[in-house]
């Protein structure tokens, strides 16, 4: 339970970062959403053998992390969670495609090794881009933007409530565990036989609490349905961000800039 609570705290810590006040935080959420999607599509449509072409895609996460003053370690440690499955899928390439493809000094890399590296880097970069979007855009602003894009209200309300109810669930779970430990004469965790009833009880208790919270929200005039949403102004800075962010991703995808730089380097 402590583990779940710490993870839920970690979840809300990313939201705290979104309360910052930097240039990136003040941009229109639609611009940030569009740039993130453009970045992901361009990054993920690159060939699995083009290791060097991933390099310019480092600019976006590095520059945004620096401008928004987000701890890089926090983004990297969360992004690393995406690595195991990507590595699992890519490790086979190392053994199957063993054609030598690149020599760096005395080290020769096979095509399989390169595709594994590309997969790992793509995983890190794509996850970093999504985390950055959330770290510079408060969750309510993001969901408001989704409403303006005509996403179904029910789905958005459900996502918001699921996100908020996580804290309630953790509280209920912690209360039940404390109650169990106080009555169990030193036993820390319930026996496996009790698992079904304990978990079921947690679920039903949480349902009751969720209903009470929901009624409280309704008493404050909240109701499910289309709402009037004010749109923040789209400024010149949003245009610049959109053109620079999405345009650079498209340029990096379309042209092999690294090849050009390498060929024309004065050395």
């Amino acid at each position: 339970m402590a583990d779940i609570r710490s993870k839920i705290n970690a979840l809300y810590s990313l939201e705290q970062l979104a309360a910052g006040d930097t240039v990136l935080h003040r941009l229109h959420p639609l611009g940030k959403l569009l740039v993130t999607f453009a970045y992901l599509i361009c990054l993920l449509s690159l060939d699995c053998s083009s290791l060097h072409r991933l390099a310019p895609f480092l600019f976006y996460p590095i520059i945004c992390t620096a401008i928004a003053a987000i701890p890089a370690g926090m983004i990297l440690s969360r992004a690393a969670l995406a690595l195991p499955f990507a590595l699992l899928a890519g490790i086979s390439n190392v053994f199957i495609n063993r054609t030598p493809a690149l020599r760096i000094g005395g080290i020769i890399l096979s095509a399989g090794m390169i595709s594994l590296l590309v997969l790992a880097l793509r995983a890190l970069l794509s996850v970093s881009a999504v985390l950055l979007l959330v770290a510079v855009t408060p969750f309510p602003k993001l969901t408001e933007q989704l409403r303006r894009l005509h996403m179904p209200e029910l789905l958005i309300a459900l996502t918001e409530m699921t996100y908020r109810y996580l804290g309630i669930l953790a509280e209920e779970g912690a209360n039940m565990l404390t109650a169990f430990r106080l009555r169990s004469c030193g036993s820390q965790w319930p026996h496996l036989q009790l698992f079904g009833s304990m978990t079921g009880q947690l679920l039903l208790r949480s349902f009751d609490r969720a209903e009470r919270v929901y009624h409280a929200i309704q008493c404050r005039c909240w109701h499910l349905g289309r709402r009037q949403i004010s749109s923040p102004p789209w400024r010149i800075g949003d245009w610049i961000f959109l053109i620079l962010g999405a345009g650079s991703s498209l340029a990096f995808r379309q042209f092999d800039l690294m090849q050009m730089i390498g060929e024309h380097w004065p050395w």
């Binding site: 060097h52 072409r53 690149l102 690294m258 390498g262």
Partner: peptide, 9 residues
């Protein structure tokens, strides 16, 4: 050359 460009970038 591609790798050199990537390293510089």
């Amino acid at each position: 050359s591609g790798l050199l460009g990537a390293a510089i970038t």
